[in-house]
């Protein structure tokens, strides 16, 4: 995983109180929701808030793009990188 991906995995663990996991337990391409890591809709809201605070992202909660960005740690990292380039 890249440094940014590790940062995001750490943010997910800390924000969502996944005390039983370490950064190494989360693969960059593992689905975060449903059958993957097992996160749910409340986690999505909580994670959006944490990403906003950490990286200054603005995420529309109902957009199809948001769903795509939130698929994996890797897709979130690409989104963060894209946003900071654009910004």
């Amino acid at each position: 995983m890249t440094d940014l991906e590790r940062d995001i995995a750490r943010l997910i663990i800390d924000t969502l109180a996944l005390e039983h996991l370490t950064v190494d337990d989360i693969a960059a391409d593992q689905p975060l929701f449903g059958q993957g890591l097992g996160l749910d809709s409340v986690d999505a809201l909580e994670l959006a808030l944490a990403l906003q605070n950490r990286y200054g992202l603005r995420i529309a909660s109902d957009s199809r793009e948001a769903r795509r960005h939130f698929e994996t740690v890797r897709s979130l990292a690409l989104y963060v990188e894209g946003s900071s380039c654009a910004g």
Binding site: V42, L45, E46, L49, Q52, N53
Partner: peptide
């Protein structure tokens, strides 16, 4: 003036 945590709120 920070946003509320959805988990805490719920």
């Amino acid at each position: 003036n920070a946003p509320l945590s959805p988990t805490q709120f719920g």
